[in-house]
Amino acid sequence: MPTRPPLRQLGLSTGKKARLHRILFRHGLGNGTAIFLPYDQGLEHGPRDFFVNPAAGDPAYITKLAVKGGFNGIALQIGLAEKFYWDYAGEVPLILKLNGKTEIPSDAEALSPVHASVADAVRLGADAVGYTMYVGTPAQEQDFAQYHQVREDAHHYGLPLIVWAYPRGSAIDSKGGKDSFYAVDYAARTASELGADIVKVNFPRPELHTAVRQEYARDFSTQEAIDAVVRSANRTYVLVSGGEKSGDEAMLEKARHAMEAGAVGLIFGRNIWQRSYDDSLAFVDRLKEVLAKYPAL
């Protein structure tokens, strides 16, 4: 079974190491694994994501859920962080998302513009910052340039940098699609090589291999695919996303595969809050049962 490298081997600055230690060992299970609650879907997808559970449209409801569920962190855009996080500041770590876009334009040349700063994150008491990087679009030159500034600022202030590494664009669509093993593996490696401390990826689907590079064109098992993605990230910790809401057993199986591969944890949003409050907490408890089996060495 692959193992996660300990914090002391990640080459982190003092500030980043201290904050990651707080996130991983003073919150959640406290065993070096993590489960984060992302709540940036209102910008990324629009209010439609809240139709199935209208209560989830209230950021106060989600922040309370993050605290009561014992999450290692909650990811918020700046407007919600400024208006709602203060109720529970210090009780659950804040990951401030620094960029984001609406789903209205095509993803063909996707770029997620920066709208907040690392200094904002420090002001709000965040323990980490998040950046969405679209790997494979023609806009990558502009994407990498604004990411460079974010990375430098995160290093200056000592905040861990979590990269949402998302393959996008027509070139990706023609090579297996955004969730193919090829695309997810490439995105994880890109985030690692560009200095992410943690990379967030969707679970790879190895069966999507139409027109991918020949190395990815054969049959891989689900476990082989996620093993390779975590290996490609090397000393960058990996968070695996739940994606769109699906069945509980399928999500738990993804969680087991991810942790077996050496991921540091999970980042599940809609799969948690697109259900009632009590059901959300019950499902979080089931996810924690998986994480409890993979403590840091």
Rank of each mutant, 00 (worst) to 15 (best):
V92C: 11
L98W: 14
N99Q: 11
G70I: 04
N99M: 13
L37M: 12
G90I: 03
H27C: 07
L29M: 05
N31T: 09
L29K: 14
Y88H: 14
P59T: 05
K83T: 12
L20S: 08
F25C: 06
D87I: 07
N72E: 09
G69D: 03
E91P: 03
K64P: 00
R48G: 08
A60Q: 10
N31A: 09
L37H: 08
K83W: 02
T63Y: 01
N99W: 13
P54V: 08
L37F: 08
E91A: 02
Q77L: 14
L94D: 04
L37D: 02
G42L: 11
L20N: 08
N31C: 11
D87V: 04
K83E: 14
W86M: 01
P38N: 04
N72H: 03
L76H: 03
G46K: 06
N31D: 14
Y39P: 04
A89Y: 09
Y88K: 06
G70T: 13
P38M: 03
I62Q: 05
E82N: 07
I62T: 03
D58M: 00
K68Q: 11
F71Q: 10
A56Q: 11
A66G: 06
G28P: 01
Q77A: 10
N53W: 11
I78Y: 07
G79A: 11
I35N: 03
L94H: 03
F84Y: 14
G73L: 05
F36H: 04
G32W: 12
A75Q: 06
A66I: 09
P93R: 11
A56N: 14
K97R: 15
A66K: 06
N53T: 15
A60K: 13
D40Q: 08
L24Q: 09
G32Q: 10
Y88F: 14
F84W: 13
Q77K: 01
R26F: 09
P47I: 08
L29V: 13
T33H: 04
Y88M: 05
L65V: 06
I62M: 12
L20P: 04
G100F: 06
